[in-house]
Amino acid sequence: MHGAPRLERWRASTRSVRVLTGEVHGHPNFPDGRRITTSDLYASDGRRWARTLSRYFVLGQPDTGAERLDRH
Rank of each mutant, 00 (worst) to 15 (best):
S54Y: 13
V24L: 01
A50V: 03
Q61I: 06
G65D: 08
R11M: 02
R9N: 13
R9M: 09
P62A: 12
S16L: 15
G3H: 14
T37R: 11
R34T: 10
F30H: 15
D63E: 12
T64G: 09
R15C: 12
R68W: 12
G33T: 00
F30G: 02
F30Y: 10
V19C: 04
A4G: 09
R35F: 07
R48K: 14
S44P: 15
T21F: 01
F30C: 04
L53G: 07
A66F: 01
D63Y: 14
T38Y: 04
W10M: 11
L53K: 05
L7I: 12
R68N: 08
T14W: 03
D63T: 04
F30N: 07
D70C: 00
D40T: 07
D45S: 12
R68K: 10
L69M: 00
G22D: 09
R18M: 07
T52S: 02
V24W: 01
E67Y: 02
L59K: 05
T14E: 09
L7Q: 08
V17D: 07
P31A: 08
V19K: 07
G46A: 01
R34G: 04
A43M: 15
L7E: 09
R47S: 05
A66H: 00
T64M: 11
V24N: 05
V58L: 13
A50E: 06
T37Q: 15
R6E: 06
S44M: 08
I36G: 05
S54K: 04
T21K: 15
L53H: 14
V24T: 11
T38P: 00
L20M: 10
G33W: 03
A66Y: 04
H27R: 01
R34A: 15
V19N: 08
R48A: 15
T52L: 11
G22I: 02
L69H: 00
A50N: 00
R51H: 06
N29D: 12
R9V: 10
W49F: 13
T14N: 00
R51M: 11
G46H: 04
R6L: 12
V19Q: 12
W10N: 11
R51C: 05
H27Q: 04
G22K: 03
S44H: 05
S16Q: 09
H72L: 06
L69I: 13
R15A: 09
P62T: 01
A4Y: 15
L20I: 09
R51N: 01
L59I: 08
M1L: 01
Q61K: 10
V17I: 11
T14P: 04
A66P: 03
E8N: 15
V24Y: 02
T38Q: 00
R6Q: 13
T21S: 05
G26H: 13
S44T: 14
H72N: 08
L53W: 11
N29L: 09
A50Y: 08
G33Q: 07
V24C: 02
E8H: 04
Y56D: 07
H72Y: 12
M1F: 05
L7N: 13
T38A: 11
V58I: 15
S39K: 02
T52H: 12
